[in-house]
Amino acid sequence: MKLPVYLGMVRSAESVLASSLRKIGDGHGSEPDVYFICHTLADQCEAHEQLLAPIVDRYGEQPDDEPERLHAAELDDTRSGPLGLLRDLQDLHLLTTFVDFTYTLVEQAAAALRDDELLDVVADCVGETSTQADWLRTRAKQAAPQALIAAE
């Protein structure tokens, strides 16, 4: 059974997303809403990790056959300036879609296994993940015209 691979994957992706959110939040601290919301969202990701922990324990850790292909990579340094903000938000958005999609697959498996506990956890997490993606999209859309047209 390969579900444990995916459980490990989603848990580590949440952790990668959390630290990336913090990094970008700090890096764009002069955009005050970005700072505070990124940290709030990072808290959510860490709470998701906690929720997943007992399930990962139950299924047991299983190493991934193709780690280089299936893992979300943590964002490196933040960029600066209006355009940098835009690209960082875009990178974060990519990470959230990775997490979201992984949850979708885990949810399918959980349904087939009739694993109610896992279904509950996915239901709790995935709504917040999609709001995270919505916020990133909302914020980037708002910033795009100024960054792409008027900023130097």
Binding site: E31, P32, Q142, P145, Q146, E152
Partner: peptide, 20 residues
């Protein structure tokens, strides 16, 4: 109407960055 209208705090941020 392509995005929400810009709020005051953001207007001042754009002025700070020199794009307003």
């Amino acid at each position: 109407h392509w995005a929400p209208p810009t709020h005051a705090m953001q207007i001042f941020r754009y002025a700070e960055q020199g794009s307003i």
